[in-house]
Design a protein around this nucleic acid. Structure first.
Lengths: 139, 139
DNA sequence: CTCACTGCAAAGAATTTGCACTGAA
DNA sequence: TTCAGTGCAAATTCTTTGCAGTGAG
């Protein structure tokens, strides 16, 4: 199912600005902040406004089509989400992002922490930062 | 070694505003955003300014005495850091925060991800969210 | 046809910077 | 005594809101 179908099924309209934002996010391989999306989206739909970018990413995030990632400097960038997968490795040099599945290690860790801290864990935020193969100079 | 000694050793001066910010952060058991720190710090040093709070947390974070944590709503809150420990469990109800050590599971996970993605992992951000024992109604 | 969606401009936060003054070392 | 550190006010972002016009369904 495409993003447009998902929007449509959820009762939202398919408009030119939304198409532009969707296209930009789907083509990006690194997290983008709203301003990035505006700039790139301008190539597709020049009238695009920043307000609409904010509203659209909020909508897409709610439908879990994109995910918000956190960065040490500029927080709140967005990347396309792979369904079921929840974590990101972000290249510190080029920003290129890859998702990896929530793994057994994470489950084991959570069980472990629940036992030692007596908290009941419901959510987690896990992001790894490093260098992608290309930026390590092995391209 | 106290925080003041650490500051001093690093060549920074010990001032009343810095003492106030330090005291507030050391007494807090949940992450605080700059405005929180300002309000609480006002009880200790009424002239405290928001600018100084920003500058002081940046300094403390650089010395790794506090850590910046990310929250889904208001990003960028700060908590006292336990040396060597790197992760937090934050209670979704009361905000109370507990640190837990970087464990074998995390190392295993990282090794795993390095293998499958071919990224070289250098940093990670791991935060768990859940309910602390008190907020689960078992107090 | 309707009303969800849009862009603009303005309002509101969050954060940083310029600057003269003050007090820690 | 000196200059790092401070508070204020102003400047910059970043993000949200109010509103009248417009086009998707």
């Amino acid at each position: 199912m495409t993003w447009e179908e998902r929007l449509s099924d959820a009762g939202f309209r398919i408009t030119a600005p939304r198409r532009a934002v969707i296209q930009v996010l789907q083509e990006a391989d690194a997290p983008l902040v709203p301003r990035d999306i505006l700039e790139r989206g301008g190539g597709v739909h020049p009238e695009l406004g920043l307000t609409t970018v904010y509203r659209t990413v909020a909508l897409l995030a709610e439908l879990e089509l994109v995910r918000r990632v956190h960065q040490s400097d500029g927080c709140h960038a967005y990347v396309a989400a792979t369904p079921g997968h929840r974590h990101h490795v972000i290249c510190e040099a080029c920003g290129r992002t890859v998702e990896f599945p929530g793994s057994d290690e994470v489950s084991a860790l959570i069980a472990n922490v629940e036992r030692t801290t007596d908290y009941r864990i419901e959510e987690h935020l896990l992001q790894l930062f490093g260098l992608c193969p290309a930026c390590r100079g092995e391209d």
